[in-house]
Amino acid sequence: MTVTGEDSELGTDPLDPPLMAPLRRDLTWPQVQLRSQSVSYRDDPELRRIRATAAIRRGTRMTKVLSAAQVAGHLGGWLPYGFCYRSCDLEHLRDPAELALLRTDGSVDSEVTFALRWRATDPIDYEVPASPAQPGLAALPAHSRVGAMVLGTGFSPSTDDLIPEYVTAGFADLPIPANAQLLAYVPGGDEVVLYTYQPEQHGWLRLAGPRWRGLLGEIPGASPDREYVPCTASASARLVGRIDDKEYEAVADPPGEFRVRALTRAARYPVQTLSRRAEQALWRGVPAWVLQRDETWARLRLLRPEGEAVNLTGARCYERGVYEAWAPVDELADHHIADIAYQL
């Protein structure tokens, strides 16, 4: 995160454009920080311009801070979803206790903090948790929330820092790109890469050396001696690509490689088109992703959580901003496969 004057020039990574604030005599750093934490400034044009500088590009490194239980879920096949951050905005936070405040499941009881880091496949996969994308999120009552409150300014609650936050678009599951990493942050500020994702095998390769194997013991169900962990859960979203008139399951390796998913390297041809495919439906008039279903029941996640939608569906908050419910399949309306196309 960088705060600069209006005329400053920065030599930065184009995939990680800095957060910039035009500090002046009448707009000091304490004032910007105060505005970011005040619901009175949700629609402030100047604060929105500052927030808009924290852009996501194809290939921008993204981070979701996790608890040990969530790490176990991702090892089993969970996809990135919900609240997340640009990695460059968190680089100054290495202490586990500081990072733990950004967890989404409300847990704060560990000396080690974990994270999932990946590169963005496309900016359309992310939105600011504020109006107009998520107008009702900040108004949800405290008794139905998990984790920190949502301010509606686009910034995370903090007394000192200015941390822009994102959510996956419509709280969707995003297909996990190649070379995503599961990390641990330990006392003293060390960052440890525990696993890296292998998309063709749909599993995680252990990278933690002998010094850090003890960290794996904190993850429910994880074995420190297991070098490869296959994902067992079926994904609710996947990438599909086309070559000429034929469709293939695809793999993203942002920023520049999008290929056919194949075990042999010779068959990993670049795709000509790419899209994210998932199921959507309406239940009681509320739009939702269909995460799982059988002949009778479907597990749904609300696209735009707000008070009336939560009451109509009886959805429960499982993580910060993530509201899910079970619905009878025969009550679903407009049940369809949605393809979200990317521009290559």
Rank of each mutant, 00 (worst) to 15 (best):
A208E: 01
G73W: 06
R119S: 15
P157R: 01
A341D: 09
A72D: 00
R213G: 14
L10H: 12
A325L: 04
P328R: 00
L239R: 03
G189Y: 01
E324V: 05
V112A: 06
L34E: 03
T53I: 09
A55H: 03
D339I: 00
Y269M: 14
V271H: 00
K64S: 11
P132Q: 09
R265G: 15
T196V: 10
L90D: 13
C88F: 09
N179F: 03
H143E: 13
D7L: 13
E165I: 15
L15R: 00
P224R: 01
D26G: 12
D245S: 15
T196H: 04
E6H: 05
M62S: 08
L274A: 08
R51M: 01
G188H: 02
R259D: 08
A267E: 02
D43P: 04
T4F: 13
P175N: 10
F258K: 03
E127A: 15
A315Q: 00
I50Q: 02
G214H: 09
R213M: 12
S156V: 15
Y342R: 15
P123S: 10
V290A: 08
Q37P: 10
R259L: 13
F83S: 08
V186K: 07
A100F: 06
D95T: 06
P157F: 15
V240N: 01
G188M: 10
G73Y: 06
G214A: 15
T60F: 11
R242L: 12
A169I: 11
M149D: 06
R61I: 11
D109P: 11
A222I: 11
P224W: 04
V271N: 03
G209I: 12
D95A: 14
P30R: 08
Y248W: 07
A278L: 14
H335E: 04
W326A: 00
D43E: 13
L312T: 06
P132K: 10
A184V: 02
Q134T: 12
R206W: 04
R145S: 13
M20H: 04
A309Q: 02
L263M: 11
D294H: 06
R211P: 03
L66T: 03
G5L: 14
A278M: 14
H74T: 09
A208N: 05
I50F: 11
E324I: 07
D95V: 02
G59E: 00
A169K: 10
V128Q: 07
A138L: 10
R58D: 01
I124S: 10
P255F: 07
A252L: 01
R293F: 14
G256L: 15
P129K: 06
D122M: 12
A97I: 04
G77H: 04
A55Q: 03
Q292F: 09
L102G: 09
G209E: 12
E127N: 14
P141E: 05
L151F: 13
L205H: 01
P132H: 10
A235H: 10
M1P: 03
D339Y: 02
R265H: 14
A21R: 07
R276H: 03
R145K: 15
L47R: 05
P254H: 03
P224S: 02
Q198F: 07
K246L: 12
L183C: 14
T313V: 02
S40Q: 13
T28F: 09
T159F: 09
A139G: 06
L263D: 04
L205M: 05
Y269A: 11
L215R: 00
A184W: 00
E295D: 05
E9G: 08
R57M: 07
G307D: 00
E98D: 14
E111M: 11
L312M: 01
R35C: 02
L93W: 01
